[in-house]
Amino acid sequence: MTSPLSPAKSLLFVPGDRSDRIPKALDSTAHAVIVDLEDAVTPQCKDDARHQVAAFLQAHPEARVLLRVNASESPWFEDDLALAALPAIAGIVVPKASPTSLLQVAQNCQTPIWPLIETAEGIQRAPEISRFPGVVRILLGTIDLALDLDLDVTRPGGHNMLDIARFQVVSASIAAGIAPPVDGVFPDLDDADSLLAATSHAKACGFGGMMCIHPKQTSIVNGAFTPDDSQVDWAQRVLKAAQGQPGAFKFEGQMIDSPVLVRAARLLESWNVRPGRSPKRSSLPCPITAQKGENAK
């Protein structure tokens, strides 16, 4: 199963009981919008939030949003999941994801599944979750995961433990052949420098995007996950130089072989794709696609 939102770099949360914010989120620089019926909504407002979201999405079937439902063991789960039938729902975000909860979702709808891994069980079963039918991309809930593992993220040890979790989620996603996962939110809305550092760290760890809690975070996240001009120029030049080469060759003092060409091709793919907007185009053929097919890794 695929989703047009799979390549999203920035995923912006909107509280379900504030449906008036959904149009603003859709008009922002966010690549995808997650309408949240879970953590952002208090128990007494759950039903009202669901009704607000249903009314908005029924009036705007052209919208494409992800919906975070409440946990499968909660009393709101089944009613939340009923919204999956609306055309505007492009995917279901499943909190505290486990194979059991994913099965419950899959049995009730055919919508693409975006598991949110945020427990020790989720990390341990990441390979199984990544390969579950209908799963298109993994989200890592770092705040809840740190709470579940009792980590002190203000100290290096806590950060190192989260990086181990990041490795497990990235490796599980790549092995399953789905899109690189999405890292957790950065909670400080007024620290742009630290947000950029956190986003750059996530990218270096193999993530393909980050969740956001405010529209002003999305442009920073998009920029950090998008190759800069010098990287794009290098990738275009090295792929052009590879045309007609029978194997490894020397380019600007560097030995170029298949892994380097794969990296260049991935870099251009990341630059070309802008979910929800017109993609940039490159007329440059990719030798990796020609040699190994579009799923070359």
Rank of each mutant, 00 (worst) to 15 (best):
M1K: 14
M1C: 07
S6G: 01
L11I: 10
F13I: 09
V14Y: 00
S19V: 13
D20T: 07
R21Y: 08
R21N: 05
P23R: 01
P23I: 07
P23Y: 10
D27Q: 14
D27V: 02
S28N: 10
A30M: 11
A30Y: 02
H31S: 07
H31G: 11
A32N: 03
A32L: 02
I34A: 02
D39I: 08
A40E: 06
A40V: 05
Q44K: 13
C45I: 11
C45W: 10
D48I: 14
R50H: 13
Q52S: 06
A54L: 11
F56K: 07
L57D: 02
Q58I: 08
A59I: 10
P61L: 11
P61C: 11
E62Q: 14
V69H: 12
N70S: 06
N70G: 09
S74N: 10
S74D: 08
W76C: 08
D80H: 05
A82S: 14
L83K: 07
A84F: 01
A85E: 15
A85Q: 14
A85N: 08
I92Y: 00
V94G: 00
P95H: 08
K96H: 13
S98W: 00
S98V: 12
P99L: 04
T100Q: 13
L102P: 01
Q104H: 11
Q107G: 09
T111F: 00
T111G: 04
T111K: 12
P112Y: 02
P115R: 00
L116R: 01
I117D: 01
T119N: 02
I123L: 09
Q124R: 15
I129E: 04
P133M: 10
R137S: 14
R137F: 04
L140Y: 01
G141A: 04
T142P: 03
L149A: 06
D150N: 13
V153I: 15
T154Y: 13
T154L: 12
P156N: 09
H159G: 10
H159K: 15
L162S: 04
L162N: 05
I164F: 13
F167S: 09
V170H: 00
I174H: 13
A176H: 02
A176E: 01
A179H: 12
P181L: 00
V185Y: 03
D188S: 11
L195D: 08
L196A: 12
A197E: 14
A198Y: 15
T199C: 10
T199F: 14
A202N: 03
K203I: 15
A204S: 14
G208E: 02
M211E: 14
P215K: 07
Q217H: 07
T218N: 09
T218Q: 06
T218A: 12
I220W: 09
G223V: 01
D229Y: 00
S230K: 12
W234H: 13
R237K: 08
R237M: 00
A241L: 03
A241Y: 12
Q243E: 14
Q243W: 09
G244Y: 15
P246C: 10
P246K: 09
A248M: 10
F249Q: 01
F251C: 06
Q254N: 15
I256H: 06
I256G: 03
P259M: 11
V262S: 05
A264M: 08
A264Y: 00
E269C: 10
W271D: 09
R277V: 13
S278C: 10
R281L: 15
S282C: 12
P285H: 06
P287K: 04
G293W: 08
E294S: 14
K297P: 05
K297F: 13
